[in-house]
Design a protein around this nucleic acid. Sequence first.
DNA 1: AAGACGGGGTG
DNA 2: CACCCAGTCTT
Length: 350
Amino acid sequence: MKISQKEEFNKALLTWYHQEKRDLPWRRTSDPYYIWVSEVMLQQTRVDTVIPYYEKFIASFPTMESLAEAEEEHVLKHWEGLGYYSRVRNLQAGVKEVVGNYESKIPRTRAEILNLRGIGPYTAGAVLSIAYGVPEHAVDGNVMRVFSRLFMIEEDIALPKTKKVFEQRVMDVIDETDPSSFNQAIMELGATICTPNPRCLLCPVRDFCTAFEEGKQEELPVKTKKLKKKVMTIHSFAISEPGGKWLLRKRPAQGLLGDFWEFPQIECNPSMDSADALKSATGLVIEQGEAFAQFKHIFSHVTWHVEGYHAVLKDSSPIPEGYRFFSDEELELVPQSKPMSKLLMHLKNN
DNA sequence: AAGACGGGGTG
DNA sequence: CACCCAGTCTT
């Protein structure tokens, strides 16, 4: 989208929002304290989960004074099951600051409100814009997803510094006449339409979306995956031909063990018979499989539990593209993974 | 910049 | 089961 289209964009966005927005409890109030409570509850938590908690919390602590004076244990009880319990401890601490230092008036500037416990860049912007109508950015994961597509921003949203790019872009586009609706509309869009798997045909602003124009909406946002430890169970099939040759396949050039040769293998699905799984994954049809080896192999970020099966290929089985037979001599000449050579060693020794 | 913090929904 | 999600604080 071009910045010059700002006015048409905001008209389309806000019209859609006013028509389609969900009726949520915190959208029926303009009390800054209630907005604050809702925004804290909504951090990392779904709307449907929050609603009953919000109702009960507001009923029990209807004013900032009542929350400030309450026992922490009592407050915590109202958060039970919501998770991230430091949120509510920080909320109460922040409310105490407002009651004690700001005459129970939540500050109206980003710099001041950011000093409050539990209020970070997102919540600051959300409260300022929604409760006070101040044109401030409120950038969360949804906003980054939506804007990355609208403007084809391809920077990695997993990097903290990238958020500044989005905050600046929001400030360029935000509707100064109704910042509250603008911020909520972007988040509503991200929650209902511009989801990870976007439903572009329903989108009120797809005509402004650069990613949609170029068919790249599925590729955005760019987010490097955290390398979490992964554990997989792999079934490898040592399939031999009557002549004594082994059936191997080459791994993809890219990624782990690129271009290495290995036994046909599948990620083990416990609910499925191994031979059936092999057939559906590779097309190979085997007569039978007999377990002959089992070991663990650890790569940098993934642990394989390898189970080897000695199997006989059915006469009628197809040999898929990328598979070929190797004699023992030929095998010496091609690269193979550690799990592969371990299995081979096992076979030779037995 | 990376890790901790909870729980629930989803493919 | 891995991954995602309306973030903030600590290290």
